[in-house]
């Protein structure tokens, strides 16, 4: 069993990560930090740099949590990748960030968070942007 965190290189992502670390400690489970970027765009704001991921790994290890950092760069659907990885690793909980979206934004782009909430087979912990 493991705690899966969907990590993004922004304040919301850091808040998500903190919640994931707490969750991993509480459950005494290892932490899996997943950063997903789409392969069908020229740049993806979700993509974390190598330095970023190294820092995450170092910081979380220093907190005494068993951590693995994974970067996925294939596929065009972050929700699919996170849900798939969660069931493949047998995650006990998925921690994601929840961004505020306008009604129109939801309609046009859909919501990655919403898909994860609906499709994941395990509990999902959603960290809200206001908290970050």
């Amino acid at each position: 069993m493991t705690v899966l965190v969907g990590y993004l290189p922004n304040p919301l992502g850091e808040a998500t990560l903190r919640a994931g670390v707490e969750e991993a400690r509480r459950r005494s489970e290892p932490l899996l930090v997943l950063n997903m970027s789409r392969d069908d765009v020229l740049v993806d704001a979700r993509r974390a740099g190598v330095d970023d991921l190294a820092r995450v790994e170092r910081d979380v290890s220093e907190l005494g949590v068993d951590v693995e950092v994974v970067q996925v760069e294939e596929g065009s659907d972050p929700a699919d990748v996170i849900v798939g990885e969660a069931s493949a690793r047998g995650a006990s909980v998925v921690v994601i960030g929840l961004r505020h979206r306008t009604a129109v934004g939801k309609l046009i782009m859909g919501s990655v968070a919403q898909r994860i909430l609906l499709d994941a087979r395990c509990p999902v912990l959603a960290v809200k942007e206001e908290v970050a």
């Binding site: 970027s37 020229l42 740049v43 993806d44 993509r47 974390a48």
Partner: peptide, 8 residues
Amino acid sequence: LRRKAGTV
């Protein structure tokens, strides 16, 4: 086609 996203 390039099949990876870059970091902006």
